[in-house]
Design a protein around this nucleic acid. Structure first.
Lengths: 126, 126
DNA sequence: CAGTATCCGCCCTGATACTG
DNA sequence: CAGTATCAGGGCGGATACTG
């Protein structure tokens, strides 16, 4: 991190903010992860992830495409076939994401426990 | 990652989803990062981050507190002084977050370039 | 200084129906 | 199969004013 003063708040103009805004939504990380093993078709991806609407899947993919993280391959066939895959740039995001999921695997229970012990939780999970 | 089938969509019941939902908002990551160097007061944190409203700061902190990632310390003084600090559990999240910000430092420009080259962008940044 | 309460707009998200 | 269009709702997030 670079700046750390009141005049130039850390993260304010820093690329980290961009990264956060890039992945800080409900589906981006999940979609990236779904593509991490190689090219996947639209429908496959939807089934793989589960619970995502086609609209959100398409929107997320389009956005990632615009950011240069995902490449779209439309084959001129019938029925249509479209595959998505990570670009080399997009592939570099897998490591950080993997760290995050690893963290979750190791500390997920602790978070759930804390949530449980928190005031106003009747044995309730998130 | 464990399951990868249509019946048990990857990430569906997996702790990774929780991690994503935990940090997938505008401020959580930034706030965690702001706490990464030690205890900080409420106002300090707001100034440090920059652009965050007190409401969102408090809400974010409360949520992190409920998840066991942040501890709140209110001193019985006047004027009031409240400090927030990462719990040991919360501190473990810094590494993954740091990976993310590091990624942004190294690939931020590439993303911006892609965004620039994308259709429908008149030299526009995000 | 720290925090809450209220109002309100915006956009994220999902459901559904439709096109190629 | 892939994608868009449209409608509707919920909650995020900001601005402001107020309390202790």
């Amino acid at each position: 991190m670079s700046g750390f003063g009141p005049d130039a708040p850390f993260l304010a103009d820093c690329p980290a903010r961009m990264a956060v805004e890039l992945i800080a939504d409900k589906w981006t990380v999940v979609v990236l992860y779904g593509l991490s093993q190689g090219p996947v078709r639209h429908g496959e991806l939807a089934a793989l992830i589960g619970g995502i609407s086609r609209k959100m899947l398409t929107r997320t993919l389009r956005r990632l495409e615009a950011h240069g993280l995902v490449r779209r391959h439309a084959y001129a066939e019938v029925p249509p076939r479209v595959e998505y895959e990570l670009t080399p740039l997009g592939a570099t995001l897998i490591d950080p994401i993997h760290m995050l999921t690893e963290w979750a695997r190791q500390n997920g229970d602790a978070v759930l426990d804390a949530l449980d012990a928190a005031p106003g939780s009747a044995t309730a999970g998130d």
